[in-house]
Design a binder for these strands. Structure first.
Lengths: 350, 350
DNA sequence: CTGTTAGCGCCTTCAA
DNA sequence: TTGAAGGCGCTAACAG
């Protein structure tokens, strides 16, 4: 079934059918209805390939994901896909499987420039109208993504050169929220387990946490700090250091769930009670950590929403809209579970 | 840059260029080289859209996933994508987000026939050469997937009518392996927590488990059985029943990780020690369960491999190969962790 | 061995 | 308001 046949059935020319279907041109209401009826009855819809060839638009966007098995990726794809489909776009997926290739050594992804170039080319050959790049780890990816003829939006990463559009989440406010929550529960001794050194998200989480604590009169130098590397094992190392302290904080904010669970695991192995002896809050709301005992209080990143917003941004860019702001920042959500104890006699502790 | 320009530069006709690029037709070695050199220098590659329009082949396969946030989906996509890309195919993704729509009530997916039809049509319009359908839950999906003009392969589900090709994993052998492992560790009292009634995978897991136990002289009627519904909560219910038993088995095989963890959680809440008081084995190797205390001994499903094999099968079908066998069954892998105790004096227990 | 040419299905300019 | 016709880039007869 093609336009020619529809036109014949309706007794009009293909042009008229095209006008009706695309809402271009002026067609009398009568013919319009006749044509639409036939189109409906026949279940006809234009051949996208032919249309693309003609219009140089494919109504297709490409999603490049650094690794689809990374915890954040599926929810982000979910958001993108939802938005794209709702707007008549189809999604091409490309998974670069970087976890297998580089393990945890994210920086070495830089050496895979040829793969990235190849994938972008692949997408361009497939005539995608735009590209969304979903990172494996929240980090600076400036100059990583090769220049492309079509618009590009980055998700779950950032670009210090501000050359690229990116969609990310807010670290500062939610870290303040974490501090506030600890304070509200009556905690007065605080610790923080850093992600890797030099990480911007880590710096922001630190800043937010400390700022809120300082508001309540707690000094930054009184906050116990341990620098980890985002991995489970460094949570255990953090606990070893924690144990050496004279005044052990009752409230520990780990900058991600893996370190939080590593810390908890080591503490439990050591016979400590959680949350009674030490309370812990994580970050990421990873599925891996949803059945720990106690359940980990944590922070959920708005991944679906990041997906949707990146889709929206990309489609706007495709339509030629100019965007002043290169960065979209979405708020996180605090997830209260069971890894923080509440002190009843809050006043006494002050 | 198009073929015409390349042809002009090489002083030949477009047909010759096409012949060279596609390896069709006979072209003199000399012209061949000249053309390839120019193509290489210009970084030219044929427009896929135009090619598709002409050949009615898109070198694209569509993946329909019932839900990309289901635990098995990303690894399956990973396998498909890897195989497809290696063979020059591009992947279109379509996520139907059924978890949001139907929750755990998988059977009601049947009522979403219109969505399925729409998605298949969408893929057909996009001219995919074949479709892979990835289910949310391992169940019978016969007559669920609307007929399509292109080959279809189902993954992580089955079709009792044998109309469709499907790729799945072996339940029987691995369940025997579970029983064997318990026996080897010296266990002599056994239990099993069923998935939902009427589930084929559950029946097979039961059969394998029991068969191996019977080989060692344990009678089926002596195996404590509880019927759950695959969910976390039913693990807790199972524990309540378990507690009422006079002769409590030391070895419990839960047919999935969620029920296993639900059981463990209830047991731990009740002051029991795991694995000392009761040992547990799960099924699925879900990420959600990787940080329980103790770590859950379980069964890993070969998801990436299922993805790769479904890709291979689909591409073979696209090329017109006839396949005798409608079903590909891949073996699972036993994952030994810490939720099973070993009795030292195994002989005495016999 | 190589070139000419007729479409694939659609959009869009131009003319009526 | 409508229709005729060219062409998007490519493939594959067919002719030479």
């Amino acid at each position: 079934m093609n336009m020619k046949e529809i036109a014949k059935m309706a007794g009009v020319s293909v042009a008229t059918v095209s006008y009706v279907l695309n809402g271009t041109g002026n067609v009398s209401e009568k013919k319009r209805k006749e044509i639409l009826e036939i189109v409906g009855k026949e279940g006809y819809s234009p051949n996208r390939i032919a249309k693309s060839l003609r219009t140089k638009k494919s109504s297709t966007i490409g999603i490049m994901v650094e690794d689809i098995t990374a915890f954040q990726t599926p929810r982000i794809i979910n958001g993108i896909n939802e938005y794209a489909e709702k707007n008549g776009y189809t999604v091409l997926l490309n998974d670069m499987s970087f976890l297998k290739r580089v393990g945890k050594n994210f920086e070495s992804i830089r050496h895979y420039g040829d793969i990235l170039r190849k994938e972008v080319e692949l997408f361009e050959k497939a005539q995608v109208d735009g590209i969304i790049y979903v990172a494996l780890h929240d980090r600076d990816v400036s100059d990583l993504i090769p220049p492309s003829k079509v618009p590009v939006v980055l998700v779950y990463c950032y670009d210090i050169t501000h050359k690229n559009y990116c969609v990310t989440y807010d670290n500062v406010d939610i870290s303040k929220e974490v501090a506030r929550y600890f304070l509200e529960q009556g905690h007065r001794g605080f610790g923080i387990i850093w992600g890797s050194e030099g990480s911007r998200p880590a710096q922001k989480r630190y800043n937010g946490y400390i700022e809120r604590l300082e508001e309540s009169g707690i000094k930054a130098e009184d906050v116990w700090t341990f620098t980890g590397d985002w991995e489970f094992e460094s949570g255990g190392k953090a606990y070893k250091e924690y144990k050496k302290l004279r005044n052990r904080p009752t409230a520990v904010f780990a900058m991600n769930d893996l370190m939080a669970v590593g810390f908890m695991d080591a503490a439990l192995d050591d016979g400590k009670k959680i949350p009674e002896d030490v309370s812990v809050i994580g970050f990421d709301n990873r599925q891996e950590c949803c059945f720990t005992r106690p359940r980990l209080t944590t922070v959920d990143i708005p991944l679906e929403q990041m997906g949707r917003e990146s889709g929206r941004l990309l489609l706007d860019l495709i339509k030629g809209q100019k965007k002043e702001e290169k960065k979209i920042i979405l708020p996180c959500r605090f997830i209260e579970k069971g890894s923080v104890t509440a002190f009843e006699k809050k006043e006494e502790l002050l």
